[in-house]
Design a binder for these strands. Structure first.
Lengths: 218, 218
DNA sequence: TAAAAATAATGATATAAATCATATTTGTAT
DNA sequence: ATACAAATATGATTTATATCATTATTTTTA
């Protein structure tokens, strides 16, 4: 059972939503939905991890969001022409609850608390999107990306510094909106400053405080 | 009477909202609300024009949105710590309807169609915010900014090319996220290519088609 | 275990845009 | 009209980051 629904919808509505939703499995590297497709509903990540990629057509793709358990996916396809503007790709084998759009709409209009939760969710997404638009030197942006990776993925169970999931350098560059080489160089710099520790592909976050200062532009 | 409310709220609720709202006047150049202040409600621009400025603290401020009649202002203060993340400044003498947050919330929870409209509004804002985050060469960004100015402000009554409101070069640079000098040079370039025409401070849009191609990255 | 492929790293160079400097035009008040 | 301030414009230089080129390391597979 999904916690968001349970919290904000009546018992009767929860049953109704679940009855009309389906659980889908997507294995690592596979697409959950793709930019350009019709928005048929909304996804909630029950298990696994995913990246949301803006395929701009021109230039290089950009990772605009990372998602983990309980995160909502596909809401960027809402409104306008009801097509996804972004693609979602599973980073690990994942399991999602898919709620068809008409069921979502019915639930939205009949459960004011759920509606309000969704509005607040969009409001947060908007704030975050705007925050990311701030123009900062690339080192600060990369600090922000690393912090976001920590927020979404957290540390490994048996470690207090190692990220539980390390994106490839290519993906980290994509999330930072920069080039691979620039990302690698900047990681090396942060490594020298003991803010992070590079261990092969894996990244350890050593100094969260400094990371926060950096991402805030200091 | 406000058209959005009228369209999506029951007559009884319209009266209730208007009874608890107030109309405020802000003269050109003055602040409607400022970043950091508590979000006390939502504004609807009844008359006039405004700019929404993200004050990043670090670096230079950035215009993230322009607003004209019927546009909603202040929704970026929703959620989280309920503080405005941006400032809104009147570009002309303006008149706004201010709906206190508790009245908005009550209306939201009791008028499903209004709630849905608001959700769609946030969804559009999110799409737009993400679209702007696309990294393009500055000329393309500036084309996008000019197009947005046209969308929001339109042409002067007696002209089919002259923008009804021309932001200062400084403000245009701020909206494009670039420097004054770069903006001026790029405008000169677009002027030479007969895509726009510079007439003192005023800007004429001569070739909307080319502007659209540019803003799309072509 | 070796070879191949993929990923990560580093050095050299090019370039778009920022910054600094200065001139020109436009608007406003005396 | 004249002086002053503000806004607009343009030239020269610097800088951050992209791009190109090459090497090193890790992972996969044969």
């Amino acid at each position: 059972m999904n916690s968001v629904l349970q919290k904000f919808c009546s018992e009767h509505w929860c049953e109704f939503i679940l009855f009309h939703s389906k659980t889908i499995s997507v294995s690592a590297g596979n697409s959950i939905f793709s930019a350009g497709e019709d928005t048929l509903g909304i996804h909630i990540l029950n298990k696994g991890k995913a990246k949301v990629v803006a395929c701009t057509g021109i230039g290089t793709d950009r990772i605009i969001r990372l998602a983990a358990e309980d995160d909502i996916l596909g809401h960027r396809g809402f409104g306008g022409p009801w097509k996804y503007t972004v693609s979602a790709i599973a980073l690990e084998d994942s399991e999602l609850l898919f709620i068809p759009i008409d069921i979502f709409n019915a639930a939205f209009k009949s459960n004011p608390d759920f509606a309000y939760y969704m509005l607040m969710f969009f409001a947060e997404e908007l704030r975050e999107s705007e925050r990311l638009a701030t123009q900062l030197p690339i080192k600060n942006v990369i600090a922000s990306v690393l912090y976001n990776n920590l927020q979404v993925f957290g540390f490994e169970k048996d470690s207090s510094t190692k990220l539980s999931h390390t994106l490839s350098r290519k993906d980290l560059a994509s999330q930072a909106g920069t080039r691979y080489e620039t990302l690698v160089r900047t990681l090396a710099e942060l490594n020298n400053e003991n803010i992070i520790k590079l261990e092969g592909k894996a990244i350890h976050i050593l100094d969260i405080e400094k990371l926060v200062l950096l991402k805030e532009g200091n």
